[in-house]
């Protein structure tokens, strides 16, 4: 049985004059990284997968005062493989004081028969900024999805900001009008930073209001951030909905620093 273990790493450092330099860019196939701009890195998948049993780890370390944009060239197609164990993808990201991370890879597609675990641990310094988008597609066209479990933990200076698990392809949640309804994809974007901190509290019984659209919502968190969540019939619709939500979230914090140089 051949399974793959890989550890890739991106690390920035301040280059003076407020510029960012990529201090480390360590690929480890199939996790291959390419610098595509002064502060931009693309993930380039080399080889199919991940497959069951694979264990991939990506470290992202954004040094204080620097900024980084991480994207991927194409969607990640998670395939069954022969092993019993699920495929695992761990992304560990730290964003230092005054630093900005924009993380928006293309969607993860859970092909029939796969079993995938995605773990994200995002650690933000008090005044770090982040834009973090995740999109999951329930199987290729017309196919039932494999099983997926995504866990997302974001903390700000050690305090919990967002902790979520997302299950796909489990009997308990499939087709439930409480969970995904009849959607075929689910996505979320965390936009966080000091500009989204809740206002100085006068009456904590009243929460900030969400912005709601068709199949999406921009949800102000209890901490300094907004989560956009969206459901979609397909990846295109999902992206459109997330964008609407992201715009609403950005608009809700006037004066917020840009969360990324440009968005496609």
């Amino acid at each position: 049985m051949t399974t793959v273990t890989a550890r890739a790493l991106i690390r920035t450092e301040a280059a003076g004059g407020g510029r960012t330099r990529l201090e480390t860019l360590r690929s480890d196939p199939p996790l291959t990284l390419r610098q595509t701009g002064p502060r931009r890195v693309h993930l380039v998948s080399t080889g199919a997968g991940p497959l069951r049993g694979d264990h991939l780890e990506l470290g992202v370390d954004v040094a204080p005062g620097t900024s980084l944009e991480v994207r991927s060239v194409g969607a990640t197609l998670v395939l069954p493989g022969l092993a019993d164990a699920p495929s695992v993808m761990v992304v560990r990201a730290r964003v230092g004081a005054g630093a900005t991370l924009h993380f928006s890879p293309e969607p993860t597609v859970l092909a029939a028969g796969c079993a995938h675990r995605l773990v994200v641990r995002l650690s933000l310094a008090e005044d770090a900024n982040v834009f973090w988008r995740e999109e999951i597609v329930f199987g290729r066209h017309g196919e039932r999805p494999g099983r997926g479990h995504a866990r997302f933990d974001a903390t700000v200076a050690g305090r919990p900001l967002l902790r979520q698990d997302l299950l796909v392809g489990e009997e308990t949640v499939d087709d439930s009008p409480a969970v995904h309804g009849d959607a075929r994809c689910v996505g979320s974007t965390l936009i966080a930073g000091p500009a989204w901190a809740p206002p100085a509290v006068t009456d904590v019984k009243r929460e900030r209001r969400a912005v709601l659209g068709d199949g999406w919502a921009a949800l102000p968190l209890a901490g300094p951030g907004v989560q956009v969540c969206a459901l979609g019939a397909d990846a295109v619709q999902l992206r459109v909905r997330l964008r609407h939500g992201e715009e609403a979230a950005t608009a809700s914090a006037p004066g917020a620093p840009p969360t990324g140089p440009h968005r496609p």
Binding site: R151, F152, D153, P160, R163, Q164, D165, L166, L167, V173, S176, P177, A178, V179, H180, G181, A183, V186, S188, A210, L212, G215, W216, A217, L219, C229, A230, L231
Partner: peptide
């Protein structure tokens, strides 16, 4: 408490806001 489950239900979120 870090690792306690956080199972999200996007539809419930949308319903609650709606």
């Amino acid at each position: 408490w870090h690792a306690l489950p956080g199972h999200s239900a996007p539809a419930l979120d949308l319903l609650a806001e709606g």
